[in-house]
């Protein structure tokens, strides 16, 4: 059995399970952007009811800069961090790649991260189907573990396992539906 999550690269903080750093990096892959532009792109695609605070963008970009994952390509006159134009570095691309390739930890409400990964994969021309396959395998691994655990006679423990299993099953049904609609999704996302 594979160990799973010992290897994780944390380059940025997570909000609601979503790594803002990786998402901003991913958004930079299509070309350099200014801070304010990044925030807008993020909010539009992934912000939903929770737009990024400017402070969050700049602290995240400062960390990415420090870690060599982005570089400053130019500064517009007027100053201020929102005027900086960021470009992703090779190390940054590798980091996004690793993040997209690393399956998310299966948990009841991971759709947001997974949705982000699917959209980013589609936006960056990577295989969203592979990503979904990897995730399905990861979910099934956990479901097997919980199913094995259910063979004990502890009914209360079976109950909590079933709770988890039904949530995981719901995730998987979403994965399957998404996998079946990837072509349409790709068209909609890159429009």
């Amino acid at each position: 059995m594979r160990g799973g999550y010992t290897w994780r690269v944390y380059t940025a903080c997570s909000v609601g399970g979503m790594s803002i750093g990786h998402t901003l990096l991913g958004l930079l892959e299509s070309g350099p952007r200014h801070g304010y532009d990044l925030k807008r792109a993020f909010d539009e695609r992934f912000g939903h009811d929770r737009p990024l605070a400017y402070g969050q963008v700049y602290s995240t970009m400062a960390r990415l800069l420090k870690n060599g994952l982005v570089e400053v390509e130019g500064i517009e006159p007027g100053g201020g961090p929102e005027r900086k134009r960021y470009a992703i570095t090779d190390a940054g691309i590798t980091d996004v790649e690793a993040w997209l390739a690393q399956p998310e930890r299966p948990e009841p409400y991971l759709q947001t991260t997974l949705y982000t990964k699917v959209v980013l994969a589609l936006l960056t021309g990577r295989s969203a189907a592979d990503l979904l396959d990897t995730q399905r395998a990861e979910h099934l691994r956990l479901m097997r573990e919980l199913t094995r655990r259910k063979s004990s006679d502890d009914l209360a423990d079976q109950l909590i396992c079933d709770h988890a299993l039904f949530h995981l099953e719901a995730d998987l049904r979403w994965l399957e539906l998404t996998a079946a609609r990837l072509d349409q999704l790709a068209a909609a996302v890159t429009r």
Binding site: D133, A137, H139, L140, L146, T147, L165, E169
Partner: peptide, 14 residues
Amino acid sequence: HEARVAAYSDREIV
């Protein structure tokens, strides 16, 4: 096609 049924397997193919 049911994941909860497949979870009784040792491994899966798609």
